[in-house]
Design a protein around this nucleic acid. Structure first.
Lengths: 192, 192
DNA sequence: CGTCTATTTGAATGTACTCAAAAGCGGTGG
DNA sequence: CCACCGCTTTTGAGTACATTCAAATAGACG
């Protein structure tokens, strides 16, 4: 079954006409590994729903250092929310870590969806609520945990993801340098 | 004018009947400074909208160390979102930093509102979206900035709030110990 | 096979923490 | 109105966690 429809069905129920309408407002696209879906400075015009593969959102600061905000693997949504909402230039890049198949939903079509099928207000509200909770949890983890504890937490929360992404990206998400991550992981594994 | 209605009017427009209906589903309450609105381990049953004063959400870990997730001053909403959404026991405390006047909206009444006035799906979606953007920004700040830069950022973003809250709470929000915050602030101010 | 990037390892450094103690500040009661 | 108490903030010394820079090793891909 279509993964997007399954995702939607978790929170609201649609008639098959409504399902078709949703699909008619989306676009399927494939991105090869390392391709860039969104550039920093651009206005984010779409939400991306991942069918397969892995995406990642991140910024680059002055020193050419990347900072990973989020990963999105199959069944997850990703976007530069700030830019998508405000329609101002954002600071995030989004790229594909692996070959990735994505469902695109443009901002206009999302608004169309709100008008045509008001239930989608609820759907996206719930989606954003869950995302907010996850982000708040991450903030608390950053405040209260050492890098090693955050690493253990990540492994517990996203057991499959750690194998799908280069270690340096995980280091960045956790909030440490790749060098330190390597040492920390070695001493962590030795203690198990 | 009623601050809550003003807040709602920023995102959706209500008839005066709808405004009255909203108000009828809320409750006004005053909390003296240092009183606790929500305890860790409890299920969060209400959202809180601050009319005046300042609230704060935080956790306490094993070592009796507090970690501040959020402040809410007049015109802001606060809750333990995880608990409110899941209706499971949460980990957050919410307390009053000053004497605070709050509008309470229970989860049931919020759901009632969704049924009676579907526009509120949109209102709370927008509210949560903005909150999500702010939280993502905070995560990126934590990943890419030193404590001093985060302090400067806080002063810029919430210029009035820094004077309303004890310094130790600001230290916790920024993510450093009160001792380090004190030293950092001293050296920061000396350099201005 | 060679090149490019990712990961590991090491040494020196810096940022932030812990523990301890002193100084400042606000509220309350005498 | 002042003195005391409790809590917050400051200051200092020693320590730990994490970074930087440099170089070696390992992996991936054409």
């Amino acid at each position: 079954m279509n993964l997007l429809l399954k995702n939607v069905a978790q929170h609201i129920s649609l008639t098959s006409e409504e399902e078709n309408h949703l699909l008619s407002l989306t676009e399927l696209r494939r991105y090869p590994a390392k391709s860039i879906l969104l550039n920093s400075g651009d206005i984010c015009t779409h939400s991306y729903f991942v069918n397969s593969g892995v995406l990642r959102s991140f910024t680059i600061n002055d020193n050419i250092v990347e900072h990973v905000l989020n990963f999105a693997c199959s069944g997850w949504w990703i976007a530069d929310f700030y830019s998508l909402i405000s329609q101002k230039p954002g600071s995030l890049f989004i790229d594909a870590i692996e070959d990735t198949e994505v469902v695109l939903l443009s901002k206009e079509n999302q608004n169309q969806l709100y008008r045509d099928i008001p239930k989608f207000e609820r759907f996206f509200r719930i989606l954003v609520e869950n995302s907010l909770v996850a982000n708040q949890q991450r903030i608390m983890d950053n405040l209260s945990m050492t890098a090693e504890e955050r690493y253990a937490q990540f492994l517990k929360r996203y057991p499959n993801l750690a194998n799908q992404i280069p270690q340096k990206h995980l280091a960045s998400y956790i909030g440490v340098t790749p060098e330190f991550f390597s040492k920390m992981k070695a001493s962590y594994l030795k203690r198990l």
